[in-house]
Design a protein around this nucleic acid. Sequence first.
DNA 1: ATGTTACTTTATAATGATTCTAATGTATAT
DNA 2: ATATACATTAGAATCATTATAAAGTAACAT
Lengths: 140, 140
Amino acid sequence: MNINADFVEKLRNSGLRPTKQRLKICEVLFNTEKTFHFTINDLSKIIKEKVNEKISLATVYNTVHAFKKKGYLKEISINSDKSYFDTNTSVHHHFYDEDTNQLIDCHQNDIGNISIKKNVTGKKVNSIEVLIKVKNNNQN
Amino acid sequence: MNINADFVEKLRNSGLRPTKQRLKICEVLFNTEKTFHFTINDLSKIIKEKVNEKISLATVYNTVHAFKKKGYLKEISINSDKSYFDTNTSVHHHFYDEDTNQLIDCHQNDIGNISIKKNVTGKKVNSIEVLIKVKNNNQN
DNA sequence: ATGTTACTTTATAATGATTCTAATGTATAT
DNA sequence: ATATACATTAGAATCATTATAAAGTAACAT
């Protein structure tokens, strides 16, 4: 029918019912050329301003968490006061601009291989994530 | 006089008045052989249970933030629901045990060198932190 | 088609961590 | 000693997130 057919399938495949609200949120999150980072607050704003649909805040929370659980979103922790989500769920790292508080992707190939020489006993490495904090040169 | 003389000086040197409360917190945090990780909640508990001194929660928050600002503590963000502090302020990385929610130090030498091949333009790298999430082998 | 059931959405209340407030207390310099 | 700026404190306020429970909707069997 349209772009949404894909999303309907995507949701159905993961056991989530394709509701109006979830499809709208899919459009906002996944119908873009580039992946991006957002906070729940950002997402609520986008829905309010750009999409002619009123979605309850509780539903936004529910949906984001459901999508995260299904692996359609990734949560990124930079500092205690903001929780970011990432529509890029592939293994990749991040730059965090401390001047502007911006989060920027750093792809696997932009970083040398990381070798863990000593692991915690009896455990397997599940993920390795690097956070590179950057700042302007001209300040102390 | 005693161990506290060092802390008095430490505090004075950084422009913080050596109050009774701050000295007690110094004892808890820095008078240990090994560095450790804690949440504000953990710290409050330790003070309540192990130290014969009642310190207001607001003061615990104030002090931890003051110490962080002065570089005596480091904040570690693993996930959105808990904020950890680390008495080890040196550059080092972390293992995070997803089964037990434990945070374990990973020293610089336990990890191969990390080369950033492509930096954000006009910025300087301020810190590189690696978070290695680990899990038990025998589960999916 | 209709009805049943389980899942969703929703507004609102509840929670819980953190910060604010403003009154009281204390370290420091004169 | 005194003044002053800095600290502590209890409790209130705030803010993000989660819980609640009632109303709505998708899915499935009949």
